[in-house]
Design a protein around this nucleic acid. Structure first.
Lengths: 331, 331
DNA sequence: GTGAAAGCGCTAACAT
DNA sequence: ATGTTAGCGCTTTCAC
């Protein structure tokens, strides 16, 4: 900017005025400055400006998701980007990988970069360490999973209700021996889904002693192996409830390998790409990652626009989509 | 930092030393500063530091992809994040949406934030406007699509060769009337794939006058509609080559709707989630987005580490995966 | 309508 | 081993 001022033969403040579109610059002056800036390929340093600027906004949001390569995360990211982009705010995304160390590293990276707001999926048991940052005025919204030890905005799916709906669906089709395939129990949503499943069985008066509940299933391959093991066991289940998208894909593979896809029912939590094109189509309790992302971003901007209300939890409903795999009756 | 120094009763430079892990600080001093920083929830301002720091690195990379919700982009993003993360560098991703205006806006946002390097998917016909930035020393790698008017590192799939392989595969299975479903022709890879397709037909001596070449097919719904129109036409093709992942999904849907999935062959360019679980499995020319991302990130860091060689083009091979849909013979 | 000086939070260079 | 001063690129404040 100094160089631009020198080349245009004007004071540095005038350049600043022109670049930022401030009033009180003559048209001739403005043209001269713009020409100089152009010929030097000048691009203002946003961070340097923010250092002195009053509100100190960086027009940047930090986003922490499960993994940027997971379709759920991708859809959420996209929705957030759309809301933020409309306001000229850029989004900075990191993958959590369900690793508490990455949670800390990513958030620390966000904080050091002075993001205007944070949208976080977390895995640690407690997010109390963010309370000072929240008090300082940085809007923080937790998505997908509820945080611990902090009062902030939260946007989540109705995990327990969705899991209960899936369970009810299988029960209604005559299943009693329903296997539950759950993620790592340190993950808040995994516990919620398991709770919804067990409570629904309880309401139906089904003894859970006979129901295989397998937790710690975290990825596709584990889902496949667990499904095969269940099918090969002495009392195989007549239905499977896989409580996460990667597990569902693994379960589909496992059922195929034992040629059980048309005899053992399957309902998944969270939708899976092309689920409707499989044979049978995969019945799922679909989440709405786009809506979760949109809402989260709206909350951030509401806070930035001055909303000082206490933290609220927004529950986005799930939606059971029957496609065939969940409508089979036990043999 | 000033506050930390005051609270600890030391000079500001000592705090700086402790925070940055510089040598020449006594253990007692270090502990006192750390305690003060902790009690004030101090987090250093990375950008303020970079303003004065010699190399001025922001430890941030800008990434522009098709859409953060596309699986190809997601896989690439993830690979880049993994390489960058290992070096303590964060990644900032934006969606291009094949819109030249977004290309300009996103790159301008990157530049204003002084990213250390840029990994770009572009859609404008010419990227000459980035030459000054490249000369200034900002490493820029173009991924997925080759840029115009600039000499820089490029990492792409072998689009023409992959398309030729797909075409050869269909020809070898007896097809002559092969429909080509192409993306918008302003997209460089779309042109390359079309070229590979037509050249392979030429090598095989197949007259292209009889071959339906449909371009401008950009999304899933367009792919579906075009496929149905082809099947309903007077001389329906015996095989379809869909040259992009969303188009392929649309084509699968179209074939299903006309119950032609077991009679009309299909090969897609770029892999599709769960393609192996469909009936028939979808034969594709798979790209390697993970490898493209990894290589691109490696190039950025090589440049940051001092590599001053001229721009190079890295071609990542494609891989034809036969799963059933591409191995059907014409009726 | 324009510009000079001070200072944002930090680090480089140079004291001590 | 610790502190002081200048200045990164910009905006603010205030003077002209």
């Amino acid at each position: 900017m100094k160089n631009v001022a020198a080349l245009a033969g004007v004071g540095i403040k005038t350049v600043s005025r022109v670049i930022n579109g401030e009033p009180n610059v003559s048209a001739a002056m403005s043209a001269r400055v713009l020409a100089a800036a152009d010929s030097l390929h000048f691009s203002p340093d946003l961070h340097a400006g923010n250092l002195r600027r009053g509100n100190g906004r960086s027009n940047t949001l930090g986003l922490l998701v499960g993994s940027v390569s997971n379709p759920f995360s991708g859809a959420m990211h996209r929705a957030i980007e759309d809301v933020a982009g409309a306001r000229g705010v850029a989004v900075f995304a990191s993958s959590l990988d369900d690793d508490p160390a990455r949670e800390e590293a990513a958030i620390s990276a966000f904080l050091r970069r002075r993001m205007d707001g944070l949208i976080l999926t977390t895995v640690s048991q407690n997010q109390g360490y963010l309370v000072p940052e929240l008090r300082r005025g940085t809007p923080i919204v937790f998505v997908d999973r509820e945080p611990g030890g902090i009062d902030a905005d939260v946007v989540v799916s109705d995990n327990a209700a969705g899991a209960a709906a899936a369970t009810r669906h299988l029960l209604a089709h005559g299943h009693r021996r329903i296997a539950f395939l759950g993620d790592r129990i340190d993950i808040q949503t995994a516990r919620e889904r398991q709770r919804g499943f067990l409570e629904e069985l309880g309401r139906a008066g089904v003894a859970t002693v006979d129901v295989p509940v397998i937790t710690g299933v975290h990825d596709e391959e584990a889902g496949r192996l667990v499904t095969i093991a269940l099918l090969d066991s002495e009392h195989p289940p007549t239905a499977v409830f896989s409580s996460q998208n990667l597990i569902t894909i693994g379960a589909v593979r496992g059922l195929r390998e034992r040629n059980a896809q048309h005899s053992v029912a399957l309902v998944g939590f969270d939708d899976v790409p092309l689920a409707d094109l499989l044979d049978p189509g995969v019945t799922v309790v679909a989440q709405n990652p786009h809506e979760i992302g949109r809402l989260a971003a709206e909350r951030i901007f509401a806070r930035l626009d001055g909303d000082r209300s206490v933290g609220n939890t927004y529950v986005v409903p799930t939606n059971l989509i029957a496609r065939g795999s969940g409508e089979m009756r036990p043999k």
